[in-house]
């Protein structure tokens, strides 16, 4: 056993030594691994439902949008791919944290010597990871349906984790701060609906007010980053959009960690 023993500074001289606290990375890795294993049990909701939904929307949109317009086709495919991320990382994660909180199941983590950041980041990272296969499958099917190139598909390896961090952060905050489980579910659904509506409609066709809504939604930057890889790639825009995702991810995950600590204080 590698446990080292420390002493509480506030404790009396005859106080029992405290067992070691779990280092951040070890805790994060353990939580991530455990969460990732849930795919074995919850494969259908975590992976397939999101793909079916996005592919269904692409089939629907094929009959609606002007397939002669590059921007329209790119917006539909990129929006549908990022929708997979929004469905799992935002919607399902908000529901998961809401359910854990409602059932006092967070007590499990709160009574272990693991840092709140390790728990929040581990769970959020796992949910973001769940979305990668679905996002890739959706992007490939979309590219074949809408005659888009597959050359820069690798960009999803950056788009999914970074937009996943941003959306998982939002989902975790919704789940942890909602006073009731139903509200967490509702917020997750609303967030996903916003990502659906504002993500797959080409930005240049939106009224100004809706465009502002699109600008405050973190998933839009993931969509824009992926759109920037089509045609003649605009890597500067790609980088800038992903930087926004990363910044939102850091902010929201920090807020989620604070919310988790707040839960710990009852």
């Amino acid at each position: 056993m590698s446990q080292t023993l420390g002493r509480s500074s506030a404790a009396g001289s005859d106080a029992e030594p405290l067992a070691a606290a779990t280092p951040l990375w070890a805790g994060l890795a353990a939580v991530y691994r455990a969460q990732l294993s849930r795919v074995r049990v919850s494969r259908v909701p975590l992976l397939f439902v999101a793909v079916f939904q996005s592919v269904g929307i692409m089939i629907l949109m094929r009959g609606v949008v002007d397939t002669g317009s590059d921007s329209a086709r790119e917006a539909v495919v990129a929006g549908s791919s990022v929708l997979v991320v929004a469905f799992v990382a935002l919607n399902l994660l908000a529901q998961h944290f809401g359910a854990l909180r409602a059932a006092n199941a967070l007590d499990y983590y709160l009574t272990l010597p693991v840092r709140p950041a390790a728990v929040v980041l581990g769970i959020a990272a796992a949910y973001a990871s769940f979305t990668l296969p679905g996002a890739v499958v959706t992007a490939v099917i979309g590219a074949l349906m809408f005659q888009l190139p597959l050359a820069n598909l690798w960009a999803l390896l950056l788009v999914v984790p970074l937009s996943g961090a941003a959306l998982a952060g939002v989902g975790a905050v919704c789940g942890l701060l909602s006073p009731r489980q139903e509200l967490a579910t509702l917020l997750g659904q609303l967030g996903m609906s916003a990502a659906l509506l504002l993500g797959i409609i080409p930005a240049d066709r939106m009224p100004m007010v809706v465009e502002w809504g699109r600008d405050v939604l973190p998933s839009s930057y993931g969509v824009d980053a992926f759109i920037a890889t089509y045609g003649t790639p605009d890597w500067a825009a790609f980088g800038a959009d992903l930087a926004v995702c990363a910044a939102v991810g850091v902010a929201m995950l920090s807020l989620a960690t604070w919310a988790f600590r707040r839960t710990a204080r009852g």
Partner: peptide, 16 residues
């Protein structure tokens, strides 16, 4: 936080 480093707790819920 000292409790988590001394106590093993079994709650009523296994949700996590």
């Amino acid at each position: 936080d000292a409790a988590a480093r001394l106590v093993a707790y079994l709650g009523q819920d296994s949700g996590a």
